[in-house]
Design a protein around this nucleic acid. Structure first.
Ligand SMILES: [Zn+2]
Ligand SMILES: [Zn+2]
Ligand SMILES: [Zn+2]
Ligand SMILES: [Zn+2]
Lengths: 166, 166
DNA sequence: ATGGTATTGATACTCGGTCTCATCGGTGAG
DNA sequence: CTCACCGATGAGACCGAGTATCAATACCAT
């Protein structure tokens, strides 16, 4: 059978699928699992790779399809890295929010919209635009990576990067 | 010779090139011209196409190289459209700012960072991140497109889209 | 069991972008 | 002015992300 890490996260995703009337097929469950067991950003290729490593072969197209599906259900969101690359992150489908991404390890956190809404409205008004959507992406170094780089520069070397499973 | 619309904008770009120690070659001048005569966003392919139409053939690579160059000089900036596509816009190299993009005609305007800086700092502090960069992109309908769609729905039809030269 | 719909995988294909490498051209020293 | 050199260019191979096609399956309901 499939490797089922089956976190609460995974369950959440699968339920979202079923609630929306899609079949929770083995492939989709696997994708849910893979996605849920990442707390950083990932690409379609990453999932494919990780899937293969767990001895499951899935068509490339299937991954993209699953990811599109999850995106439309808002349980994952597409991110544009500064490099120009496209990546995905899991996130809460309910509240509008943005992402804070560690450029060291890729970890990503949701951040509330806060005052931004008002600011955006103000900008729209000032320019006479009807704003339809906005995107805010923040890139920086997470506490873990900061600590790691500090201790590294202090002592000899180290590597406490990349957060594994959530 | 080359078609030289030669706006102030074009000149600005060329000067930026020379100031940075790059040759202002015919190709780069043409790219500067093309770029300057757009007020919306554009892709590398667009430029190539427009260049050809003006009976100048340029290698694809050359366009990408010129665009990279201009990007590094901050006279153009890369934009990530909601569709996931990459586009470029011209912009002021000096002050930090963001972009407001019309999803109707593609027109783009610089918007000042304003209060956003403070907001970003606050978020970084709250999450313990050292924020290195941020990106805000706003998508909406510009006054022209709004007016056009209104008059269109009122009378029979119309099309006042896409702004030509700046 | 049976038909109909949803899912999947293999494959071909498009397209943005990069890389290589041989050629070309402007600039500067002599 | 001439020559050498280094930056700029173009053609084309190449790569990787994402899409399109289409036939084979899996699932579901009757
Ligand atoms: Zn980190
Ligand atoms: Zn927001
Ligand atoms: Zn518009
Ligand atoms: Zn800003």
């Amino acid at each position: 059978m499939r490797p089922s890490i089956n976190t609460i996260q995974t369950k959440r995703i699968i339920e979202a699928l079923e609630r929306a009337g899609y079949q929770a097929t083995p492939n989709r469950r696997l994708v849910a699992d893979l996605v849920a067991s990442t707390n950083g950003h990932f690409t379609a290729a990453d999932l494919l790779e990780r899937g293969r490593r767990e001895q499951v072969k899935m068509g490339r197209a299937t991954i993209f399809r699953a990811l599109d599906l999850l995106t439309s259900l808002r349980v994952v969101e597409r991110l544009d890295l500064p490099s120009g690359a496209h990546a995905y992150v899991v996130c809460e489908p309910d509240k509008h929010h943005h992402h804070l991404v560690c450029s060291g390890c890729g970890r990503s956190e949701d951040v509330a919209d806060g005052e931004l809404g008002a600011l955006v409205d103000e900008i729209g008004r000032r320019h006479g635009y009807e704003i339809q959507s906005h995107r805010l992406e923040l890139f920086g170094t997470c506490p873990v990576c900061t600590a790691a780089s500090e201790s590294r520069s202090a002592t000899g070397d180290a590597s406490a990067e990349q957060g594994g499973p959530a």
